[in-house]
Amino acid sequence: MMNEIVLEVKNLKTHFISNKGTAKAVDGIDFVLRKGETLGIVGESGCGKSMTSLSILRLIPSPPGKFVDGEVLLNGKDLVKMSNEELRKIRGNQISMIFQEPMTSLNPVIPVGEQIAEALRLHQGLSRKQAWDKSVEMIRLVGIPSPEKRAKQEPFQLSGGMRQRIMIAMALACTPEVLIADEPTTALDVTIQAQILEIMKDLQRKIGMGIIFITHDLGVVAEMCDQVGVMYAGQIVEHRDAKDIFNNPLHPYTQGLIGSLPKLYEDQEELQIIEGTVPSPYDYPEGCRFAERCPFSTDICVQKEPSLIQYGDNAKVRCWKYTNEWQDSLAKEVLKS
């Protein structure tokens, strides 16, 4: 069954503690990922996308990072409660990750082929020869010319785009159930980007891999994703079917994001931009974190934090506008004036 939940994240919180205070980088993230499905995560720089994905595999450096709360359920088993040994069997095997930093994420003194092959030997019990052959095969698959030669080279001999593709080959080598891809195609030019996305989709069809796709690029979201989670200030503010989010965004922040997209067939005087700045993770306001920038903000928004509520059958949104309290709050405001 394709609709089986493979990964569920509940109330995930990761904070960074330093002498500057506590940065609530990830502050109560919830989402589900189903088999064969792609969940896009979008949001401004610094909203906590990368830290969320690192938290899932418990890769946050500690100190200063600190896991505060939450559950990460892979097929119902909580990664948070696992021993390191159990977790190692999952890392790189059932859950793989493509990191945002392609230039520095490969070991500079180990041939790239070996960096792919070592995971194959570890998780799939392949022999040296088999693992190497498979590794070369993966490098070919991601479209790097003369893979036999490239496999023997060290990262400094490869271009940034090639390194990114090596990372992708590495993540896909063990056919994971969940692939976390943190801006996997940012370093690549458009044709290669399309090619890589195709490879990912292809593998997804074959093995039913679930993908968490982190990106800035809403165009890629439209093309790749089934679901979208919009993040703002360490939280998910809207969770939607991808096809709905462009036509009918619910959260004012999402509306702003969509509104800031250039539209190809419409005559636009100017692009909308979201005014104001993101609050500091060291000092989030008590109420809605978007209140300062929100055109609809009212008393209740500033006083109380909205929670992520179900809206209709398959949407979730974190905004007072879609609650009963909203009407009361508006009424009160009218009375006051």
Binding site: K89, M97, E118
Partner: peptide
């Protein structure tokens, strides 16, 4: 460094990470 994080994400054991990577 980032590449040590990559090695961890691969599921390698601590001693492999220390001595090899």
């Amino acid at each position: 460094q980032d590449y040590i994080r990559t090695a961890k994400a691969k599921g390698l054991a601590e001693h492999v990470i220390i001595y090899k990577h």
